[in-house]
């Protein structure tokens, strides 16, 4: 339905960041960078957010939270990993408690490198994410037109895979029981 790219709402989650990247994300909201001129709103509500910004690598405690936030977001949605920790694990990569980048838990669409990521590159990443958001939204509309709106049962892990909504196809990969991207399983 039309141009959703004019109104991307962000959800920012700190997975295990040193706060360096968080400060830079917040800096984007300040008068100097003012991302609100692109219609960006920094909401705290996953149900109303479109773009998930994750800073910091994922550890065993935050993995569940990241997964849950992602699940609670309504389609279409996009994920941006901000900072090298969120991309790969960064300097903490080999720590005993770090699983690695955000993509070990949920699918990531845009990687913003840097330690800490500069506000300019974060904005650039968000602009990229907004394009993906528009594409995915168009795919979602097409799907809904053909198949009708479905209210997904969040308790069913394979539902996303069965529905086959292209706006959601990453869910289909990660959400099926066999497609689980659990890093521990990979290691073994």
């Amino acid at each position: 339905m039309g141009k959703v790219k004019r109104s991307p709402w962000l959800l920012h989650y700190d997975a295990s960041s040193c706060n360096g990247c968080d400060i830079e994300v917040l800096a984007c909201m300040t008068p100097v960078y003012d991302v609100e001129r692109f219609g960006v709103v920094n909401t705290a509500d996953p149900m109303q957010a479109d773009i998930l910004l994750v800073t910091g690598g994922v550890n065993s405690q935050s993995a569940e939270v990241v997964k849950q936030l992602y699940d609670q977001m309504a389609r279409p949605k996009v994920v941006v990993a901000v900072g090298i920790c969120a991309c790969t694990g960064g300097v903490f990569k080999d720590c005993y408690n770090i699983n690695g980048g955000v993509d070990t838990v949920i699918p990531v669409d845009v990687y913003v490198p840097g330690c800490a990521a500069r506000p300019e590159s974060i904005i650039d990443g968000v602009v990229k994410a907004v394009q993906i958001f528009q594409e995915r939204s168009d795919a979602h509309d097409k799907y809904v037109k053909e198949h009708g709106e479905s209210e997904r049962d969040l308790s069913d892990p394979d539902a996303a895979a069965r529905e086959g909504n292209p706006a959601d196809f990453f869910d289909a990969i990660t959400k099926t029981s066999e497609g689980s991207r659990d890093k521990e399983a990979e290691k073994k």
């Binding site: 339905m1 004019r6 149900m47 309504a74």
Partner: peptide
């Protein structure tokens, strides 16, 4: 902007 926001909100998957 408020109109863009509302339009987008209606386009999203319904979660209740």
């Amino acid at each position: 902007q408020p109109f863009y926001d509302v339009q987008k909100l209606f386009a999203k998957q319904r979660i209740v």
